[in-house]
Design a protein around this nucleic acid. Structure first.
Lengths: 216, 216
DNA sequence: GATAAATTTTGCAGTGACACCAAATTTGGT
DNA sequence: ACCAAATTTGGTGTCACTGCAAAATTTATC
């Protein structure tokens, strides 16, 4: 056996703290629950909580590593002859159709979503994760294209892509928070996503090019 | 006279606190200076500091309103027959050429830049401001194009644009922090900026479309 | 120019996230 | 059972920030 009692207890304790924290945060709101309360509910000391999770936000975003690597991995594992953008569009639409949670689509996560949306510090964390995603994707794109390290093209592309993905995810969240059911908005969401990827693909050069007041 | 003694003193106090805080932060690092130290140096109580500035970060980003509205305003005030993207490119390159600080180009701001870059909380604030810029620009684009409120196109365009602008600014900052002189990097920066806007204009559809391993 | 009203400043007490450290507890190996 | 290593805990402290009530100051009133 590769796991002694020590390891198991550690894992269990960590899981217990994480679970209880999640429950408390979702039911009471992230900012209305103190770390001390989490500790008490989990029957450990505050120090123990901070032994496992270095910040209060980490109690929720524990597995952030995967999520930060997602677009990067999709590009890395794209099909032969598929462009980065094609791969990302495919993966995004697949996730939408199958209600996979990797881009935030998941029924019944209303309470969780609401909690995140309502907390400024968690919003900040979301933005941080998006920045990390962008950086990871930029590195991957640079690798895949054997780009000159001084060339910002991969960074630009990554930034644009992540920006659009972030918009799509945020939009879905907002509508779900407004009470709309995921199934109800999925078709429109799909249309919007296609539009977003189309803009990425063909550019926005001719967007907002008309005269400023009253179109003819 | 429209300004009594009370108003003048308020303005002076606020300015004094802000100036002293800036000085202390730049010379010692944002995270190495406490609000109490700022208060003592400005000869006021901690509470007075918080009377004027609601957070420690606000001691620096006071005039953030203008900066958040910048791209939005550029689009609003663009020349006749100019597209949103053309206006933004023109404004950005103008700022670069004239070393205007509105996009962060300014010689001698090394210490300030370094301080911001070194503080996690200030980085978070930068991201926040970027998000605000994006939102403002999205609203403006929606207005200018009389877009359907359910259409995400303006939001997508704003997100892409702000992402590229942010990349450009961050890149410039990083190189300046690496010790390069602004005059030395300006030509390359200009080239990168043109590349970035070109990508925005024409899209990244054919980017990273080749075979994954070893180009032929 | 004394006084009252409005406003600003201050002191004080408290909260909550988090750091640091030394003591106590638990576990693994013998 | 015993020792060393890892884990947990309590205590103590810092810092941003809040709320409140008592000064201090400016302005308006007579």
């Amino acid at each position: 056996m590769s796991e002694g009692l020590r390891e198991r207890k550690k894992r269990e304790t960590r899981q217990r703290i994480s679970d209880i924290a999640m429950w408390l945060f979702v039911t009471n709101g992230f900012d209305n629950v103190t770390v001390a309360e989490v500790a008490r509910a989990a029957d450990v000391s505050v120090n123990t909580v901070f032994n496992y999770f270095s910040t209060k936000e980490d109690l929720l975003f524990d597995r952030q590593g995967e999520v930060e690597d997602l677009p990067s991995r999709v590009v890395r594992e794209r099909r032969p002859r598929e462009s980065a953008l094609q791969a990302l569009r495919r993966d995004f639409l697949d996730a939408l159709d199958s209600r996979h949670h990797r881009y935030g689509f998941h029924e019944g996560s209303d309470a969780f979503t609401r909690m995140v949306a309502e907390s400024p510090s968690l919003n900040a964390r979301i933005r941080e994760m998006n920045a990390a995603r962008e950086q990871a994707l930029a590195r991957t794109l640079a690798d895949e294209t054997n780009a000159d390290p001084d060339d910002l093209t991969p960074a630009f592309a990554a930034a644009q892509i992540c920006a659009v993905l972030h918009r799509l995810m945020t939009h879905a969240v907002q509508r779900m928070l407004a009470g709309e059911d995921l199934n109800a908005i999925a078709p429109d969401l799909r249309r919007q996503a296609e539009r977003g990827f189309e803009l990425l693909e063909s550019g926005i050069g001719d967007y907002c090019a008309g005269p400023r007041s009253a179109p003819e």
